[in-house]
């Protein structure tokens, strides 16, 4: 419990720092919001009026305190451009981004686990080297390039899947999934390699363990040894990475949502960036940081499931 409390403390400080620095950057540095809003040829008086109206000429610390207070009460401010409530806007789009991320991680895991096992099973064997080469090519291929190639091949050439668009779940599961496949695959084709490599390294050492030798001495089949005896003790680093990757994936969804026209948080952020809608940018960054911190907490919980030593530590001293 003490450990979790300390983690929480640290993460709390991190959130304060992140929000404050974001706020400072957005509010102090060039690119004056009031000028942006007033338009190109506006008088100094008009700009001043906007500042007054939005409370922009009060001290930064006070405005920050107000804004943070608002975050806790669900008031994340309103867009400068279309007056949309920021919290509402994010919450409306988050499920879409979340679905994309979960799909991408699921595909990445479905690729990484068998590939990592096959590699670890005979390190430097033929299978290992082929998988290693594919992984090498995969990491050299950023998601936006993968996306272009996938669109070119599966949408334009074969016409199997749509190149852009989004359908809500209410239109049916397949209608919803169909346009999500290519975007999720674009992300997964980058993410799987690092998961695979991590699993491979850890599994190679697990396969040297005495309990694997005992499982073999018990006459267990290779499949059973790999999936039942070796996989769980080998996946600790991979699970940690899964959490850390949420940050990368959140970054990745931004560009993928843009390419495939998916109305998620990333698209909201990009649009805010193009229109310099600072309050929305601020909200999105805060949201991303919160999501990252939460994901890491979930990883800690996942550990407890994976490793009975962690799970029962409290009960048995």
């Amino acid at each position: 419990m003490h450990y979790l409390f300390r983690r929480f403390q640290r993460l709390f400080i991190v959130m304060i720092v992140v929000t404050f620095v974001t706020f400072l950057l957005v509010n102090i540095l060039p690119g004056d919001v009031a000028y942006e809003m007033a338009g190109m040829d506006s008088s100094e008086a008009e700009v001043e009026a906007i500042r007054e109206e939005m409370g922009l000429n009060r001290p930064v610390l006070i405005r920050y305190a107000e804004w943070v207070g608002g975050i806790f009460t669900g008031d994340w401010g309103r867009s400068f451009i279309n007056k949309e409530d920021v919290w509402h806007a994010i919450m409306q789009r988050f499920p879409v981004s979340f679905e994309l991320m979960i799909l991408a991680q699921a595909i990445a895991l479905a690729m990484a686990i068998p590939a990592g096992m096959l590699s670890a099973y005979r390190p430097n064997g033929r299978g290992d080297r082929i998988i290693g080469a594919i992984a090498f090519a995969s990491v050299s291929m950023p998601s936006f390039m993968t996306a272009i190639l996938l669109i070119y091949f599966f949408s334009l050439h074969l016409g199997w899947l749509p190149a852009t668009g989004y359908e809500p779940l209410s239109e049916g599961l397949w209608a919803n999934l169909k346009p999500m496949i290519l975007p999720a695959l674009s992300l997964a084709l980058v993410e799987w390699t690092i998961l695979m490599r991590t699993l491979r390294v850890e599994m190679i050492s697990v396969l040297q363990e005495n309990y694997i030798a005992l499982a073999r001495a018990k006459g267990m089949s290779n499949r059973r040894i790999l999936w039942v005896h070796a996989l769980r003790p080998s996946s600790f680093s991979m699970i940690t990475l899964l959490g850390l990757q949420v940050a990368r994936l959140l970054g990745g969804t931004i560009i993928i949502e843009q390419i495939f026209g998916i109305p998620g948080v990333g698209r909201l952020l990009i649009h805010a960036v193009y229109t310099r809608d600072f309050i929305v940018i601020q909200g999105c960054v805060t949201f991303f940081a919160l999501a990252f911190v939460t994901a890491n907490f979930l990883v800690d919980i996942a550990y407890a499931w994976l490793d009975p030593r962690v799970r029962t530590r409290g009960a048995h001293g």
Binding site: Y211, A213, L214, A215, V228, R232, P233, D307, R309
Partner: peptide, 8 residues
């Protein structure tokens, strides 16, 4: 200590 699988 090492011959039994820790997660089973």
């Amino acid at each position: 200590m090492t011959a039994l699988n820790p997660v089973l």
